[in-house]
């Protein structure tokens, strides 16, 4: 049965988990965006070999469960001598995973800029890098924000997968409370409300941005 008192009494404990969730989301998102931009650009402009390698990376990651990547980084990398503590392992896995999706976001945005823009930049004598930096990427900025906000909201939810490597995020804390009180429903509902409070504003913001771009 749902008991609000259980949620209320354990709220500080749940909020500490939400703090971990949010910190992990932000750190992962920052690295995922930087890596995604790099992978996307290398995929478009890196030439045949680099283009093929980055394409392989994007397709493999997109076709693999995020949970599998987390387990791989946390449990399998130590075998080859790379020992990452929980938080960095989780952040690296999620960033690697989301970088593949975000690379596609940037690729779509760059490809949506008319060819005449880069031709005009080249006709002034700009290099490819200068054209990207001063002409193309600034124009993609407004187009990538809505999809990036969507990825951010999805990432908030996907961080719950780190419960599998026993990280005490929001979901894991809710499960602890459930086991302790023999009432799994109340803390899970509490966690759901907190997740919604984090994701809803982000998705609303994304929708508002989309409206302004149109």
């Amino acid at each position: 049965m749902l008991k609000w008192s259980i949620i209320w009494e354990n709220l500080p404990f749940l909020l500490a988990g939400a703090g971990t969730t949010l910190a992990l989301t932000v750190v992962s998102m920052v690295f995922a965006t930087a890596a995604g931009l790099l992978v996307g650009l290398l995929n478009m402009y890196g030439g045949k070999v680099v283009g093929a390698i980055t394409r392989l990376y994007i397709e493999v990651v997109r076709g693999t469960p995020a949970l599998l990547i987390i387990l791989l980084v946390y449990y399998a990398l130590p075998i080859v001598g790379i020992n990452l503590p929980q938080f960095p392992a989780a952040a690296v896995s999620l960033a690697a995973c989301y970088a593949a999706y975000i690379a596609e976001v940037f690729r779509a945005a760059v490809e949506s800029i008319p060819k005449g823009q880069s031709e005009a930049a080249f006709s002034l004598g700009m290099s490819r890098l200068q054209a990207l930096r001063f002409v193309i990427l600034p124009q993609t900025f407004r187009r990538v924000l809505p999809p990036l906000a969507n990825e951010f909201a999805a990432l908030i939810k996907d961080t719950s997968l780190v419960a599998f490597i026993s990280m005490q995020d929001l979901l894991f804390k809710a499960k602890i409370i459930g086991a302790r009180t023999y009432n799994p429903m109340s803390p899970l509902i509490g966690a759901a409300i907190i997740y919604l409070l984090m994701t809803t504003p982000v998705m609303q913001w994304s929708r508002n941005l989309e409206k302004r771009v149109d």
Binding site: P114, G116, Q117, E119, A120, A121, F122, S123, L124, G125, M126, S127, V135, P138, Q139
Partner: peptide, 20 residues
């Protein structure tokens, strides 16, 4: 070629001014 383009100005049918 970039140096060459500095010396040759180009005006396009679709203007291609930078909208940002």
């Amino acid at each position: 070629i970039r140096r060459l383009r500095e010396d040759i100005g180009m005006v396009f049918q679709q203007f291609n001014v930078f909208p940002h």
